[in-house]
Structure formats: structure tokens, C-alpha cells
Design a protein around this nucleic acid. Sequence first.
DNA 1: GTAACGCTGTGATAAAATTCACAACGGCTA
DNA 2: TAGCCGTTGTGAATTTTATCACAGCGTTAC
Lengths: 204, 204
Amino acid sequence: MISAKTIERLFLYRRLMTDLIKRDTRFVFSHELANMSQSSPAQVRRDLMTAGITGSSSRGYDVVNLKSRFDEILHSSVQKAALVGIGNLGRAILSYFPHRSPAVEIVAAFDSDSSKTDRIIHGIRTYAVDNLDQVVHQTDVSLGIITTPKDAAQTTADSMIVAGIRGILNFAPVPVRVPAGIFIESLDLTTSLEKLAYFSRRPH
Amino acid sequence: MISAKTIERLFLYRRLMTDLIKRDTRFVFSHELANMSQSSPAQVRRDLMTAGITGSSSRGYDVVNLKSRFDEILHSSVQKAALVGIGNLGRAILSYFPHRSPAVEIVAAFDSDSSKTDRIIHGIRTYAVDNLDQVVHQTDVSLGIITTPKDAAQTTADSMIVAGIRGILNFAPVPVRVPAGIFIESLDLTTSLEKLAYFSRRPH
DNA sequence: GTAACGCTGTGATAAAATTCACAACGGCTA
DNA sequence: TAGCCGTTGTGAATTTTATCACAGCGTTAC
Ligand SMILES: NC(=O)c1ccc[n+]([C@@H]2O[C@H](COP(=O)([O-])OP(=O)(O)OC[C@H]3O[C@@H](n4cnc5c(N)ncnc54)[C@H](O)[C@@H]3O)[C@@H](O)[C@H]2O)c1
Ligand SMILES: NC(=O)c1ccc[n+]([C@@H]2O[C@H](COP(=O)([O-])OP(=O)(O)OC[C@H]3O[C@@H](n4cnc5c(N)ncnc54)[C@H](O)[C@@H]3O)[C@@H](O)[C@H]2O)c1
């Protein structure tokens, strides 16, 4: 079992490989990859070892080979996602993600405000939250994105889980409780910004 | 020196305290705080110990006392931030952050597209990027937020650093290199979403 | 009074993540 | 051929982070 930290870096490496391939670079050394990913050569080699990738001591790692091994590990097939909360952040995400990731496709968005529903925004159909269960079942959505205000986050998560969603990305600045077996990732921009403020203050 | 992980949790605890105070709750036990923060009682007690906070075994921790100790550690004075890249994500952030954090205040936004500059968006004045250096110096901005496309991220960071910024929050999905002494935090929504897809696939 | 309870504070321990450090290898030079 | 160089692959060591487990204390029950 590959650790979450390593998986995150593999996603990053994969993106870097796409760039390198575009630039016709054929081989990379661990220290080059480390530079590109703000990491250390030892870390890179350890990650690649974990991924079962092997390189050559004289040329480094074969870029195309890396890429296809990453694809194998990371992206088995596209999963469908639903976003709930079509506010400022929700709309930014809707505008951005179409065709951005080989792993995820946002196929529906929901809101409680009827002025935002039953339309198409950035190519994605929007529905009233009441239809969540039905749409998720019908279109086999497995991922949920929460961009509602914080008070609605927990109930939104609950509805998602009832509807059969297996993983949730939560942007509301509150922890969301989920039963075992459901993957939850919270992305708290406020805390990130505050951490920034804290650590920028003094030399570290 | 308190670790970054602990600091992040202290910010979260502080926010929880603000809520509890509003609700006139006077005391919390470590297991309650653990519940609210998706953590463990032992972790909470360890964090509070690190923060030099002491509670009572019968009543738990004094909420107001906690809050003021957190303020002390996390620094109560506001730091000014500038955002570069007034696109979909940049605007979402501009709409959200005014009066959200006691630690950070966004005071200016910049873009290379002149149709977005020299206005006021969500109460924040927008400028042409060429004015970055001048505005940052004049208004004593110490933090930078990058929401430009990925190709512009590194040069934006470089300009910020030249202008005297001490910490950067980067939303572009590329690692940004900074000299020692500058704090950089990258928040990669794409990787978060992909990680979600990866770990939702199988039971974990 | 004293026994029982539930919580804190923390040393000890475990687990996870990262880095060290070096043998082994391939290729280059002469 | 032999010697050197720079890199990989990886066990071992280190550092960081989280958990365990329990002594000690204030409170309550009787
Ligand atoms: N905008 C940002 O940059 C930013 C930054 C940090 C955190 N966040 C968090 O992200 C979330 C969304 O932020 P935002 O700025 O987009 O807010 P917003 O107010 O612009 O949007 C929230 C949307 O959720 C909808 N909504 C409310 N209750 C709902 C419910 N029960 N079911 C479905 N939809 C519901 C609203 O109608 C609205 O469209 C918030 O929790 C916020 O704290 C946002
Ligand atoms: N929107 C999202 O939800 C989302 C999600 C993940 C990552 N991102 C990342 O965040 C960044 C911004 O995304 P977005 O959707 O807001 O993009 P966007 O295209 O809507 O906005 C980018 C803005 O940056 C400005 N810009 C371009 N070059 C510039 C320069 N050199 N100096 C100053 N301004 C410049 C553009 O004029 C535009 O206003 C991108 O790097 C994107 O990869 C966005």
C-alpha cells in the first residue's frame, strides 16, 4: 500500500512528465526531478522505488516509462464528481476542472438557491439539491465536492453519503464527519492563509 | 519551536473557540475538542500542552483562556496580503476573505489584463501588475497570493520577492522556487481532487 | 471519610516520513 | 585493460508525528 504522501507526489511527477514529454526530454535524473518538485533526490528515488520504477545509473529514468507507470498506478479510469454549492468558489471550480484531470470529471452541480439551478454553467448541468440522490444514482457519481457555507457542510456530506458517494472534498472551513469507508479530504484555505501569515513572520 | 502541523491545528482550535464563545460554552474537554476537529483526545492534549495551556481534570479547558492563549501564540496583529491574478479563483478569494481572518487582510489585487485593473472588487483595489513593487512597498504588504495561470506563477513569485514579500500562497499547479527565508505554501486543488479519486476507489 | 469516576498531563512507545550513506553499476577516458 | 565519475537502489538511521497508558487529582456518591 502506497502512502498518501507518496501518492500526492506521484500525481505531481506525472504532471511534470507530461511537460517533459512535450519538450522532448527523454531522461531525467532524480536530482532534476527533485528540483522540479521542490523535493530531495533521495525522496524522489524512494518514491519511484515504491512505485516499482527502475532507472539507469548513467541516464537516469526514462520519462515515457515513468509517465506510463504513473498512469497505471494513479489513473485507472475517470470517476464522476458532483459539486454542491454554486457560489463564488463553486463556480471557479466549475470553470476550471473540465478537461483538467484524467482522473476526475465533474458531471453535475447542485444548489439550494433556485436561481442557480436548472441551467448549464461551464458545460455542467445544475440541479436543485433535492435531486442529489436521484442524479447521483442515475449517473453513477462517486465523488462529491462541498462548496456550501460551513453550516450546510455536514448535512450536505450526509446527503452525499446516503446517495452513495464514496469520497468527499470539503472546502468549508469545518471538519466534516463521515463513517468509515468514506474518504474525506478537507481543504481549508483559511488555515493555509493563516499558516502563511504565521510562518512568514519569522525566519524559519 | 511549535511544529507546522500543530500550528495548523491551533488555528483550527481558535476558530472553534470563537464559535463556542458565541454559544456561551465555558469549558471543553479534550475529547469534545477532538470530536470538533476530527482529531484524537491525546492529540488535542498534546497540542495544548505544547501551547503551554493547562486545564482542569474536572471541567476541562477554559474556552476564553484557550482563545486568548491561541491569539497570543498565533499573533494577533494583521498582516497585509496582495493577490495576483484576478481570474475565477482570484475573484472567489477576493469575495471571501475580507473580515474572515484575524491574521490576514487582502489589501490589493493585480492583473496583467487592463480590463480588470484600476477598479474596486469586493472592496479591494485592483492595479496593473507593473505597480506591484510600488504598491507593496507603499502599503507594507508582506504576503502574496498567486492565482495566475501556471506559466506566470514563477515570474509572479519572483516579482513579489523583489517587492519585499516574505511569504507566498501559490494556487498554480506548479512548484514555485523561492530563496531561503521566504515561506512558500502551495495549494494544489488538482492534486487534492486526484488524491480523492485515488483513495475513494478502494476501501482504505 | 473513603471509594469510585473521569479527566488531565506527560513519559514512553510506536508509527510514519524522510534522509543518510554506500555498495554496485554503467559508461567514459586513456 | 584499469581507473574514475556520477548515479541508482536500498538498508539503516534519523527525524517527525501520533498514540498509548497511567499516575495523580478534583468531584461526586454514599
Ligand atoms: N470563496 C473562497 O475563496 C473561499 C475560501 C475559503 C473557504 N471557502 C469556503 O467555501 C465555501 C463556499 O464559499 P463561497 O465563497 O463560494 O460561498 P458563497 O456564499 O458564494 O456560495 C455558497 C453557495 O452554497 C449554496 N448553498 C447554501 N446552502 C446550501 C445547501 N444546504 N445546499 C446546497 N447549496 C447551498 C448557496 O446558495 C451558494 O450558492 C464556504 O464554506 C467557504 O467558507 C471559500
Ligand atoms: N479556478 C479553479 O478552481 C482552480 C482550480 C485549481 C487550480 N487553479 C489554478 O489557479 C490559477 C488561476 O485559475 P483561474 O481559474 O482563476 O484562471 P483564470 O484564467 O480565470 O485567471 C487567471 C488570471 O491571471 C491573469 N494573469 C495572467 N498572466 C498574468 C501575469 N503574468 N500577471 C498577472 N496576472 C496575470 C489573467 O489575466 C487572469 O485574470 C491557475 O494557475 C489554475 O491552474 C484554479
